[in-house]
């Protein structure tokens, strides 16, 4: 049973996320949370398993670097492995 319609309903109420200023708020909230988490590290005593984790902001910056590597590598991978949707249709 498929009941989707292709076009938005004109009488739909405007939702919170439909307003660009709210999307911008969400975006800056992510920046704020990252800064807050770095700041909290100064207040919390660390109990960690490896030596590298003692460095300030290790988990945050490790994640930042890892994700940049992921996106760049994935863009390269897509160039190599991406094919049209019907690529396997005849086999």
């Amino acid at each position: 049973m498929i009941t989707s319609q292709e076009r938005p309903v004109p009488s739909e109420p405007v939702r919170w996320l439909d307003r660009p200023e709210n999307v911008r708020r969400v975006y800056y909230a992510v920046w704020f949370l990252c800064a807050l988490l770095l700041g909290l590290e100064l207040l919390i005593e660390k109990h960690v398993e490896t030596a590298a984790e003692h460095w300030f902001g290790f988990h945050g910056f490790f994640s930042l670097l890892a994700c940049v590597v992921l996106v760049l590598a994935a863009k390269l991978l897509r160039r190599i492995v991406s094919r049209p949707e019907n690529y396997y249709d005849d086999c």
Binding site: V26, Y27, V30, W31, L33, C34, L37, L38, L40, E41, I44, E45, K46, H47, V48, E53, G57, F58, H59, G60, F61, F62, S63, L64, A66, C67, V68, V71, A74, K75, R78
Partner: peptide
């Protein structure tokens, strides 16, 4: 300590996602 480490890991990952999506540079 553990909760903070995990939140840092995830929120900085979210930051990369958000920055790239906002600048239309994400996959």
């Amino acid at each position: 300590s553990h909760v903070l480490a995990q939140l840092q890991l995830l929120m900085f990952s979210a930051l990369v996602f958000a920055v790239l999506v906002r600048n239309r540079a994400y996959l």
